[in-house]
């Protein structure tokens, strides 16, 4: 059997879910018998080619996140929302009841300790933030959800091995967590 091709990325996330993926420890070697990585922080490949599985950490908070997410959806047969932020917006979405302009003004202009004349960054290379942070299923179709902040290494291992074996992933008590 040829290896499954897997891509991973972190959008509006903290890379905690990727750390949790590494937390499957020596089982990474078993995993590498079954899969090879395409675009991922692990390979540093910048764009996603055709893949069997896309693992998305983080929600959608800016324009770049939307482009990356669409690139993944276009190229991946199966897309998995991994972790609280991808599933429901998570920590970044805690800004959603505030006005974006008020947040930017407070952070870059009116908070204490800023340099005199500090301005809201406006470089064309910076992706524009969205008014609200969205879970990824509000932007593209998502096939599976793996909640947790982060999902534990054991949960990720169970989920991936179920999926690779062709079973519907099932976590059960102790592995299914929202915290």
């Amino acid at each position: 059997m040829s290896k499954l091709r897997v891509a991973t990325t972190s959008l509006a996330g903290c890379f905690g879910c990727h750390m949790s993926l590494l937390d499957i420890d020596e089982r990474l070697l078993d995993l590498l018998e079954l899969v090879e990585f395409d675009r991922s922080p692990i390979t540093d490949i910048k764009h996603c080619g055709p893949c069997d599985l896309g693992i998305i950490e983080g929600g959608v908070c800016n324009a770049e996140n939307v482009h990356v997410l669409r690139e993944f959806r276009k190229n991946c047969k199966i897309l998995v929302a991994t972790g609280a932020c991808a599933v429901n917006g998570g920590l970044p979405a805690q800004r959603n009841h505030l006005e974006l302009h008020d947040i930017l003004t407070a952070v870059y202009q009116t908070e204490g300790g800023l340099a005199h004349g500090a301005q809201i960054p406006n470089d064309p290379e910076l992706p524009l933030p969205l008014n609200q942070v969205h879970p990824i299923h509000e932007v593209v179709k998502v096939d599976y959800f793996l909640p947790g902040c982060p999902p534990s290494g054991d949960a990720i291992w169970k989920f991936l091995t179920d999926l690779i074996a062709g079973r519907t992933p099932s976590l059960g008590h102790g592995l299914l967590h929202y915290d």
Binding site: V87, G89, A93, H97, E138, V142, P147
Partner: peptide, 20 residues
């Protein structure tokens, strides 16, 4: 939360209100 675990809720599925 515990009841959602019991029902195997993997996602909130609907669009969030994010109320203030």
């Amino acid at each position: 939360q515990a009841t959602a675990y019991e029902m195997g809720m993997m996602t909130p599925h609907f669009d969030h209100f994010y109320p203030d």
